[in-house]
Design a protein around this nucleic acid. Structure first.
Length: 246
DNA sequence: CGCGTTTGACCGGCGC
DNA sequence: GCGCCGGTCAAACGCG
């Protein structure tokens, strides 16, 4: 790729990031769409990678019946990532990506069905619902708050990596709060919450049915703190992570 | 004893 | 309305 082309691409990426930030209030990925360092597990190191292209934001303004936009991107790491997809969509795109050449490829996918995962999208909806709760008793309101909290989806992204261990060391401390065997899978899905006070970030970990060597990790929400200090040796990344708390 | 995991029960969303 | 399913809760348990 020539330097001119690279420069144009960089400018394009910058423009797209600006537009996404405007539309969503924040970027679903860190600036320049580089993946934050997540730490390492044994010899499996999850390093930053650069996305060479991404779907233009205009293609993200989908209507309900539209086919989700999908862009397949070469990676510098053998990781596969999708953002904010629900499980079915994620599985669909993973299947299609595998057809296109396996873990060397990365897919980004967004559709209107995914928009709810980007925080602000449902804000007007949830605020309307909250407005009608005046008549409810305390217990009901409390329960309602719990339910509504569930409805407000945090930004999510997931990635796939090949690893013997399920829980990759990403610098944060997690507490397992559930495990579930989901339909049509042999491997249980584990649910983790960040142990930090006031941090509601969650992650799900499961193994791919088609290839048990692959671990799918889905993060939901944004950390309100830095990674644990006992992971300080991953210094190069900490400044990056401090900015985005993914 | 404190913290993390396990696991069955429960709940809400969704499709039919 | 009903049943299925994914996600969460919380008591019991294990471990250092």
């Amino acid at each position: 790729m020539s330097s001119t082309t690279q420069a144009m691409l960089n400018q394009s990426l910058f423009d797209q990031e600006q537009e996404m930030q405007t539309q969503m209030g924040f970027l679903p990925f860190p600036p320049s769409l580089s993946f934050p360092l997540l730490g390492s597990c044994n010899n499996q190191s999850l390093k930053s990678f650069t996305i060479n292209s991404l779907p233009h934001p205009s293609s993200l303004a989908a209507h309900e019946n539209e086919v989700p936009s999908s862009t397949t991107i070469n990676l510098t790491e053998t990781l596969l990532l999708s953002s904010a997809g629900n499980i079915k969509q994620r599985e669909d795109h993973i299947t299609s990506s595998a057809d296109l050449g396996g873990p060397q490829l990365l897919s980004l996918q967004r559709s209107s069905a995914n928009l709810w995962a980007w925080g602000e999208t449902n804000e007007s909806l949830s605020s309307k619902k909250m407005a009608g709760e005046d008549h409810l008793g305390v217990a009901a309101v409390k329960m309602k708050k719990i339910k509504s909290r569930r409805k407000v989806r945090e930004p999510r992204f997931c990635f796939k990596t090949m690893s013997d261990i399920d829980v990759l060391d990403d610098g944060y401390k997690w507490r397992k709060y559930g495990q579930k065997v989901v339909k049509n899978t042999q491997h249980p899905r584990s649910y983790y919450r960040c142990t930090q006070d006031n941090c509601r970030v969650k992650k799900r970990v499961e193994r791919l049915a088609e290839d048990p060597r692959m671990v799918i990790t889905t993060y939901e929400g944004r950390h309100v703190h830095s990674p644990s200090h006992d992971q300080e040796d991953s210094s190069q990344a900490s400044s990056h992570l401090n900015n985005f708390f993914w």
